[in-house]
Design a protein around this nucleic acid. Structure first.
Length: 739
DNA sequence: GATCCTCGAGTTCT
DNA sequence: CTCGAGGATC
């Protein structure tokens, strides 16, 4: 075959192969068998290898390029890839529309409703019609360059198709995904090779795209769908539906189902319809996207703080990932404070990427309210995508053999009596929680040791729940103070296994634990106060107490705390001394005079107390908390703490309170951190913020100035958006810290 | 007296 | 992350 014949044949083969890719993936109407397709491909390959000068970069044989790469290059998006505001019911959709009408009173409702694909967001750049770059969403501003991986997806054209000449630059945005059947088949293969399998399609997609070797990616059944434009040159579309049509005519896969509606209510119905037809789609959907169709209106609406004002994601609560399983039994856990918590053990189920086998039922009240019985079939979800929770019982699945559960009357660990405490406060009543009343209960002892050793407390590396259990079980430690008397030889031989099958802790870990304990001796007072687990004293209160007192002895004898604890008494005296008060009516004038004097004095006393509380940075500590502290130290437990610390020669000191930086970049700002950051742990980020003068809080409210957002942020981000709180992503946060 | 905010405690899996 | 309750504020 001469060269020009070969060139013509190669061109023909490429066009054929591209046409069949399109028929197979986009039209879902293949006309060739896989073998016939492979024949075309092999012929092209042979032709190209005998005439290398015929190879073009867009040839189907060039999808799997070069060698594995070292790592991905970070690329800045030309226009940020934003996420959408989430809505969950028609009311929120109506608010969305109302907000639009407020800004654009003449707006004629006109929406496109399309599936929200549960995959991994990607952006593709076509320059002069050629695929030049593919980028992951990343943090929305910067993503990873995954061009060589994306080129292996056969349904993505390497060159834009169609009769229209391609624009000079077209950025298309969409989602890479894997369908469920393909994931199962892939897992089968991975398992045979002894490789790690993927728990869900999104993990499978993300994991595949992160492969450094494009040859591996080529074997993964990845697919993609595109639904919008990013940065473009020389391409203008009046409406979103025109964009979708254009994407399709360029040979890109677009959503198979989308609808056009003229009211927000119709959009909601369309979204439900879409969800019901999920089975017709090759991907799993994560709800629907409702978007203003008219691009001029979209531009006018622009952005809310961080999300477009012209589109929302819609996901009804019942569409949240749920799973059904069987409740096999209910066991009781005993916590550090003695609280008995019922926990359901269920047949393991996959949900959102992990296997769930235990679910907390919180307390008896919850079990009764949801009428949960042993043997029930239950629907579960992961509240806030983390903690598993029971949604409801499947009544139809009841056989009549289910057993009602009631809380034990004795502690399942130590056999002591259990009781619920009285609620403090005037209204009385009982706490829902039941508590084991034996302070020496092995479970409580172990949990207190575990708490003491936890990261937020004294951070005893190597000492976790399992080690704590065994230390108590073998009688090596009953209190946190016993830890400081452990000898290396003894600790190293701690048996973590059973009597017959021993598994020793080992010298290395034992040394690590002892080193950490030694370091803990000189830990600041705040950490110690927290670690001791005094009721009502958590991280924040411990910090406040430590900033107002130098040592633990100072706190134990604190006059100020005692006065706070007594303040209701003071209030009562003030009321009693009020000459205008009920009980003093009709008293002789002379006596009223005396009362008035006393009243004035007491009011001044109260004012002084409030002032002193502020001065010492003790706001937030009221009578209830103060009383807990005041009663703790003279108690048996409190006495032991003071005595043991003395015996061990440990005297925690409060750190000189670093005066808040009034000139720092976050001076006087209230900041909350959520999600996972790359360069910091959450607590490091919080420490950095405090150093920069910020007040760090744990929840978002209208008093919050900023929300620092890491990846996988949850409800806090939603709340911040609703309240219009400015958010900072990691890059912006670091930037602001430096300034 | 009501309402909003904040803190503590318990929680799962990898 | 969610819940419940204490504390602050109007």
């Amino acid at each position: 075959m001469n060269l020009s014949d070969a060139r013509a044949r190669a061109e023909q083969l490429r066009a054929e192969i591209e046409r069949h890719n399109r028929l197979y993936y986009i039209e879902a109407a293949p006309v060739l068998s896989d073998r016939q397709y492979d024949q075309l491909y092999d012929e092209l390959k042979a032709l190209e290898s005998s005439h290398p000068e015929l190879v073009t970069p867009t040839s189907p044989t060039q999808r799997v390029g070069g060698a594995p790469i070292e790592g991905f290059t970070r690329v800045q998006h030309r226009a940020p890839m934003l996420s959408l505001e989430k809505t969950t019911d028609i009311r929120e959709l109506e608010l969305f529309e109302k907000e639009i009408l407020r800004k654009l009173p003449d707006f004629q409702p006109d929406y496109i409703v399309e599936p929200k694909v549960d995959g991994v967001s990607i952006s593709l750049h076509y320059v002069e019609g050629l695929l030049t770059q593919a980028v992951t969403r990343g943090d929305g501003e910067f993503g990873d360059d995954i061009t060589s991986n994306i080129r292996t997806l056969r349904e993505i054209p390497l060159r834009l198709q169609g009769d229209q000449p391609p624009p000079p630059h077209l950025e298309v945005r969409g989602e890479a995904y894997m369908n469920e059947a393909d994931r199962i088949a892939l897992n089968e293969k991975l398992r045979e090779r002894g490789d790690k399998t993927f728990a869900n399609t999104r993990n499978a997609t993300a994991g595949s795209l992160k492969q450094l070797d494009p040859r591996i990616v080529a074997e993964r059944p990845l697919r993609a769908v595109f639904y919008s434009l990013g940065y473009t040159e020389g391409a203008h579309f009046a409406t979103h539906s025109e964009e979708l049509n254009a994407l399709r005519s360029f040979g890109l896969p677009v959503p198979q189902i989308w609808q056009h509606t003229n009211t927000i209510a119709a959009a909601e119905t369309a979204a439900r319809d879409l969800k019901e037809r999920e089975g017709e789609l090759p991907y799993e959907i994560d709800g629907a996207v409702i978007k203003v169709n008219d691009n001029t209106a979209c531009r006018a609406l622009g952005l809310k703080t961080n999300v477009p004002a012209y589109a929302v994601a819609y996901k009804r609560p019942e569409w949240f990932n749920e799973a059904t399983t069987k409740l096999e039994r209910i066991v009781i856990q005993v916590g550090r404070t003695g609280v008995l918590t019922p926990v359901a053990e269920v047949a393991p189920v996959f949900l959102d990427g992990t296997t769930i086998s235990r679910i907390t039922l919180h307390n008896e009240e919850e079990i009764r309210r949801k009428d949960i019985r042993i043997g029930d079939t239950i629907v579960i979800k992961r509240a806030g995508r983390v903690i598993p929770a029971v949604v409801r019982v499947v009544d139809d699945a009841r056989t009549g053999n289910e057993l009602r559960f009631s809380m034990p009357t004795t502690c399942p660990i130590c056999g002591s009596s259990v009781a619920s405490r009285e609620l403090s406060g005037e209204r009385g009543g009982m706490e829902v929680a039941l508590r084991c009343e034996n302070p020496h209960c092995p479970a409580q002892e172990a949990r207190r040791i575990e708490y003491f050793a936890s990261r937020a407390a004294l951070d005893i590396d190597g000492l976790g729940g399992a080690v704590a259990d065994k230390l108590v079980e073998r009688g090596l430690a009953h209190t946190v103070f016993d830890l400081f008397r452990l000898r290396l030889e003894v600790l190293a031989k701690l048996n973590l296994g059973t009597e017959d099958k021993a598994r020793l802790l080992g010298e290395k870990i034992a040394q690590r634990i002892l080193a950490a304990l030694d370091k803990a001796r000189s830990a600041p007072l705040a950490k110690w106060l927290f670690a001791l687990g005094i009721p009502s004293v958590g991280e924040t209160i411990a910090l406040k107490l430590a900033s107002a007192h130098q040592t633990i002895d100072d706190l134990a004898h604190s006059e100020l705390i005692a006065r706070i604890a007594d303040s209701p008494e003071l209030d009562a005296q003030i009321a009693a001394a009020n000459p205008q008060g009920q009980q003093n009516r009709g008293k002789p004038e002379s006596e009223k005079e005396k009362l008035a004097q006393r009243h004035q004095l007491l009011i001044a006393q109260r004012a002084a107390l409030l002032d002193e509380i502020k001065q010492n940075n003790l706001d937030g500590i009221g009578p209830v908390v103060a009383r807990e502290i005041v009663t703790f130290f003279p108690s048996l437990a409190g006495n032991t703490v003071l005595r043991e610390l003395k015996a061990l020669g440990i005297n925690p000191q409060s750190e000189p309170s670093h005066t808040p930086d009034t000139s720092g970049p976050f001076a006087g700002k209230t900041v909350c951190v959520t999600g996972t950051l790359n360069a910091f742990s959450r607590s490091d980020a919080q420490a950095a913020l405090r150093k920069a003068g910020a007040k760090v809080v744990d929840s978002v409210s209208k008093n919050t100035d900023f929300l620092v957002v890491g990846s996988d942020a949850g409800s806090k981000l939603d709340k911040a958006r609703k309240l219009g709180i400015p958010t900072l992503d990691e890059a912006a946060f670091v930037e602001h810290l430096k300034s």
